[in-house]
Nucleic acid binder design. Sequence first.
DNA 1: TTGAAAGCGTTACCAC
DNA 2: GTGGTAACGCTTTCAA
Lengths: 333, 333
Amino acid sequence: MRDVAEAAGVSLKTVSRVVNDEPGVKGDLRDRVLSAVEKLDYRHNLVASNLRRSDARTGVIGVLVQDLANSFSSSLVRALEDAMRPHKVMIVAASLDETTLREQHMVENLISRRVDGLVLVPASARQDYLAPEVRSGFPVVFADRAPRGIETDSVVIDHALGGFIAVDHLLANGHRRIAIIADSSTITTASERVRGVRAAFTKYGLEVPEDLVRVGERTEEGARAAVHALRGLPDPPTAIFAGRNTIAQGAVRALSQRGERERVALVGFDDFPMSDLLGLTVIRQDVSRLGALVGERLLARIQGDTSPPSQQVLPPALIARGSGEIPPPRVAG
Amino acid sequence: MRDVAEAAGVSLKTVSRVVNDEPGVKGDLRDRVLSAVEKLDYRHNLVASNLRRSDARTGVIGVLVQDLANSFSSSLVRALEDAMRPHKVMIVAASLDETTLREQHMVENLISRRVDGLVLVPASARQDYLAPEVRSGFPVVFADRAPRGIETDSVVIDHALGGFIAVDHLLANGHRRIAIIADSSTITTASERVRGVRAAFTKYGLEVPEDLVRVGERTEEGARAAVHALRGLPDPPTAIFAGRNTIAQGAVRALSQRGERERVALVGFDDFPMSDLLGLTVIRQDVSRLGALVGERLLARIQGDTSPPSQQVLPPALIARGSGEIPPPRVAG
DNA sequence: TTGAAAGCGTTACCAC
DNA sequence: GTGGTAACGCTTTCAA
């Protein structure tokens, strides 16, 4: 910038004014500056600019999700991107892979980089470590899963309701031997979903078939193996609740391999691309809306909103596509 | 930081040493500094730090893809993330939606932010605008599509080969009325793919059935409409080449609606999750490998590699799953 | 082992 | 309208 000023024969400040499109520079000087910029391949340094600026905005937010390659996470990031673009805010994103330690490192790192705010789909069980930041007014919005140990904005899905709806649907169709395949119960969304499932059994005055509960699966491979094992039982399940999109995918694969796609009912949690063509009944979370609401909240905080933490809850919905409507086999008799 | 120094009764420099884990501070002082840091909720400011540092690394790279919600883009970002994580480099990502203008804005913005390097899946036809940066040694690696107008590193898929393999497969299975649905020819990957398709016809000494060529589609809806229109022709195609994952998805939907999934052959470009369960024959690009190679190249450049620009080309592969192996209907007579 | 001063590239403040 | 000077929060250089 100094070189530019020298080349154009003006002061540093004038160059700064031109570069920032500030008023109060005559066309003559402005042109001289611009051509010097051109000639010297000068690039405005936003890092230095942000350091000096009074409002101290970096125009970047941090977004921490589970797995950028998963359709749920990537759709969320995309929705946030769309919400932020009009405000010229960019996104630095990272995958946590359900690792508590990585979450803390990343949060710390992003704060050191002075991001304007943070969107967090937490991997950890508690987020007390964020208390100092939240107290000092640093904008943090939780997405999909509620915070624990701190009070801050959140937009979450009613996971328990989703689990309830799914299994209520299967029970209403006459199923009783319903397998439950879900993520580890340390993951709050998973335990919430299972809680809803149990509530559905309770509504019907039924016991949960504990021998068919498989908690702790999250990969497609694990789910596939679980389905094979479950269907191999003496009294196998006639329906399956898959607590996550990868689990549903594994379940579809396993049932395909066994030639049982038309015979065993299946309801998955999380919609994903092309699931309609598979005829898969799912509990859909409106990820675009989730992202839009999270973005809106975060922007408000960044712009100085100091109202008390808000907790928004979005209801999931059952999308019937066939797999969840398969009836239980007739009992001989 | 000044406050911390004061609270601990040491100099600024000592705090800096402690915060950066530099050697040469006695345990006594170090503890005093750390407790002051704790008490004052001090957070190291990487922005200021990077400004002053001699190596001037920000530890961030920019990644510009077409659509973060598309499985191809998100898989690429994920692969890059994995390649960068060991080097403590984060990713700021954005979707271009095939918009030339956004590409240029984003590139400019990222350079202003002094990212350490750039990964670009270009939306523009030419990238001459990047010439000054590339000339000055700024690390840029093109992914999936080769640069035009500048010379820099690239790792691309052999799109022409992919198009060739796909249609060669259909021709070998006896099809002659093959529809080609592809993205706008201004998108180089699309035109390359179509070039390969034409080469396949040439190999068989056949003319391309120009009445079945639909170039300029990219959305699922557009593809669906195109398939309906094509199959409604007096002499309809017996096979379809879908030049992109969204097009393949639209084609599957349209054929499903028409009850023709078992009757019309279909080969898609780009694999996507669950396509195996749809029995869809595709040309697969190894996105993980693409991302890993791009990451490797970019890291080398960031670390000072000044060898001539390298051009790596990855071969795509045909994955036969049924839809591409449907034979043409027998002709009466 | 510790500290003082200079400076990274920019913008804020106030004088001209 | 334009320009000097200080300062942002940190690291570097060099001296103690």
